[in-house]
């Protein structure tokens, strides 16, 4: 895998806080091939947004990363600030979390898209406006609305305008940070479909950050499941969701309501994620895991390949059949809930 588009190797990102150093992202590696969509899933606070900020080099002051983020062979972490500024938007663009806040309320939407184009190219104002019109056609908004202000747009349209902006310069990688969390299901389905179609048409790669595993199932080919700053399981969406190896992935699946097929009881994962200022010594999921044994509390599990491209970090890969069977039962998790309480 030498010609991957984006390769992240042993990325560690640290925030300085009053309680000392917090390693929000700890030894994360994954790769993205051209034209591929990768889903980054995990609970709030598991470090998924920190990874995005590390890639974009948008971390706040006092935070630093180590490791390697190479985009077509250049390590982004080595670039100077002006060099990095050229990469942003031109090579990597971002669709941010809340469409409500990502647009400037006092400028026309068309001018905001035009600004992004003109900063990175030599296009004139009229060229940029024309490009913006094309982009709006692409995301399905009437071009006359480029003259309007963000407050005149509905939530779904604002999100589409942001997608248009992210596509403006045909970037290699698009990063979508929870693009649909604030929207209702109908608009969510529309946006996801649009993102998927456009990405196919333009053959750009994408990182989809979300806590919603159904969004990943609908849009991505590969998935990286994160827990407390570490990758617990990664692989193709089909492998990971149909044959999960890590108890956390099973827990996430149990907790997720399904609309198709028969109704099953929702089982939530007991407890809360650990404090990253003082992370546990062994496996970070150990205290919430019903299958944890002594070794889990002492030693961090190494990542193992169970199938081509399917990596799992768990001590109990060998007894997977039994774990899968047990994880489906309500009692397994309920017992642990009582112990924790």
């Amino acid at each position: 895998m030498t010609n991957s588009l984006l390769e992240i190797k042993n990325l560690r990102t640290c925030y300085k806080s009053l309680d000392g150093l917090v390693w929000a992202v700890d030894d994360v590696s994954f790769t993205i091939e051209p034209g591929e969509t990768l889903g980054l899933v995990g609970e709030s606070g598991c470090g998924k947004t920190t990874i995005i900020k590390s890639i974009m080099r948008l971390l706040p002051r006092g935070a630093f990363s180590s490791g390697e983020i190479s985009l077509k062979g250049t390590n982004l972490l080595d670039l100077s600030i002006p060099e990095m500024r050229k990469v942003r938007w031109d090579k990597i663009s971002i669709i941010s979390q809340s469409a409500m806040n990502a647009l400037d309320p006092v400028y026309k939407v068309g001018d905001q898209i035009g600004e992004a184009i003109r900063t990175h190219t030599t296009a004139t104002k009229t060229d940029a406006w024309k490009r913006a019109e094309e982009l709006f056609a692409l995301v399905g908004i009437d071009k006359a609305r480029l003259n309007e202000y963000p407050h005149q747009f509905s939530g779904g349209m604002r999100q589409r305008a942001i997608i248009a902006m992210a596509l403006a310069l045909n970037p290699d990688v698009i990063v979508a940070d929870e693009p649909t969390t604030a929207l209702d299901v109908v608009v969510q389905a529309q946006i996801l479909k649009r993102i998927r179609d456009l990405q196919k048409k333009m053959n750009s790669s994408m990182i989809m950050v979300t806590h919603d595993i159904s969004v990943v199932a609908e849009t991505c080919q590969k998935v990286v499941v994160m827990y407390a700053g570490k990758v617990v399981e990664s692989g193709s969406v089909k492998d990971v969701f149909e044959n999960p190896y890590h108890p956390y992935t099973m827990g996430l699946k149990n907790a997720f309501p399904n609309i198709k097929g028969d109704k099953f009881d929702l089982i939530s994962i007991p407890g809360y994620p650990p404090d990253l200022a003082d992370p546990p010594k062994g496996c970070r999921f150990a205290d919430r895991c019903p299958f944890a044994s002594d070794i889990c509390f002492v030693e961090q599990p190494a990542s193992e390949e169970v199938k081509v491209g399917h990596m799992v970090a768990c001590h109990h890969i060998d007894s997977i059949d039994e774990i899968r069977e047990q994880a489906k039962k309500h009692d397994t998790w309920a017992k642990l809930d009582k112990e924790l309480a």
Binding site: A189, R196, I213, S214, F241, N258, I259, K260
Partner: peptide, 11 residues
């Protein structure tokens, strides 16, 4: 309503 069953053909 999105679904957790991965599918290839799209939404």
């Amino acid at each position: 309503v999105p679904n957790t069953v991965p599918k290839e053909d799209g939404i």
